[in-house]
């Protein structure tokens, strides 16, 4: 790990100013991605501004939404009763991610900013990585790709955004509050990430010195239910091969309204609007479920190692839709 200066401010403004003033500075929160990347030599900041003592921890429950401090840990958010009742799939996604130890460290803000797990990105001895070093190529495309993305990618980069909780969060259209050198702004998660096929080296719209201070999560309306299905090789402690976050409101045996997002497949957490549109106002129909999934995956870019994900994602979504509509049948 490269030597670095370490600051630990106690006010948001100080933290933002400290990073903004130094092009080689960066924020440090839970560390579960960053410390790992620093050890790998992939990320070499000269100055770390530790934000873990900033007053950005805690959950404010309002009637229509949760205001979640960016430093709230995954375990803390999962333990919030309102999350269990009104955002079931957020809780499920949180508890299916990583391990308890990591969830005690990882912050919700940091989770959204986690870097790809791609082993070519994370190994600086591999020179071809457009995400790490623009226009150098993509080693993953030609080598071993299994934990990689098939949506929002092309031959320049197939990096996966591996977050679980970001999948339901994008389904409910959560937004982040950002403090930065130019002041405060709100960014909907639907506009937060940048797809790899839109520029492999840019992961999100944040600028240098921008700090997520809060995540605002709309509560699902009364009468909705939601669930998160994660498919992976191991039974626990593994990133998703595919996952599906579904929230819906049944209207008799019809799907009244529905929100869908997929994980494990996209260079960004993947909102499945095509599927939502195909299913909204329709009867429960397994064939249509599969067609909806196929519509989402129609634009997939695959390499030999990831080809199976197209079918698996369709099946994952279908299974989750079946599970969630079963009670209505």
């Amino acid at each position: 790990m490269r030597a670095f200066l370490y600051d630990r401010p106690t006010a948001v403004g100080e933290a933002v100013a400290a990073v903004a003033a130094d092009p080689q500075a960066a924020f440090l929160a839970g560390g579960t991605t960053q410390v790992d990347l620093m050890k790998d030599g992939v990320w070499t900041p000269d100055r770390l501004v530790d934000i873990t003592r900033l007053p950005l921890r805690g959950i404010l429950v309002e009637s229509q939404q949760l205001k979640v401090g960016a430093l709230t840990t995954m375990e803390q958010l999962a333990a919030e009763p309102v999350v269990e009742q009104r955002l079931t799939f957020v809780r499920e996604a949180l508890l299916l991610g990583a391990s308890v130890q990591l969830r005690n460290m990882a912050t919700i803000g940091g989770n959204l900013l986690q870097r790809t797990r791609c082993r070519y990105f994370r190994d600086p001895t591999v020179s071809a990585c457009n995400r790490r070093s623009p226009d150098s190529g993509c080693a993953a495309v030609d080598n071993v790709a299994r934990m990689h993305a098939v949506l929002g990618v092309d031959e320049r980069c197939i990096a996966l955004h591996a977050s679980d909780v970001a999948v339901p969060l994008i389904a409910v259209e959560a937004s982040v509050l950002v403090d930065g050198p130019s002041g405060q702004r709100r960014i909907p998660l639907t506009e937060f990430w940048v797809r790899a096929d839109e520029g492999p080296s840019i992961e999100n719209v944040l600028g240098h010195g921008d700090l997520i201070t809060e995540i605002d999560i709309p509560l699902l309306p009364q009468g909705w239910r939601s669930g998160y299905l994660k498919v992976r090789d191991r039974a626990s402690y593994e990133f998703a091969l595919t996952s599906a976050a579904v929230a819906l409101q049944m209207d008799g045996d019809m799907i009244g309204d529905i929100r869908i997002a997929l994980g494990g497949v996209g260079s960004v957490p993947w909102r499945a609007r095509e599927a939502e549109e195909m299913l909204r106002g329709t009867h429960v129909d397994p064939v249509r479920f599969e067609q909806a999934g196929r519509a989402v995956m129609a634009s997939a870019f695959t390499v030999p190692g990831t080809a199976f994900k197209v079918d698996l994602a369709v099946r994952t979504l279908s299974r989750q839709l079946l599970t969630m509509t079963e009670a209505s049948r």
């Binding site: 797990r117 030609d142 071993v144 934990m147 402690y237 593994e238």
Partner: peptide
């Protein structure tokens, strides 16, 4: 689970971490 993968062109270990090379966990 266990499958140590190798990059075909270079012979590099492609999944040489405990996050990428899967061994059975308690829940398995």
């Amino acid at each position: 689970f266990e499958d140590t993968l190798t990059d075909p062109g270079t012979g590099r270990v492609a999944n040489g971490t405990f996050g990428d090379y899967l061994v059975a966990v308690n829940a398995d």
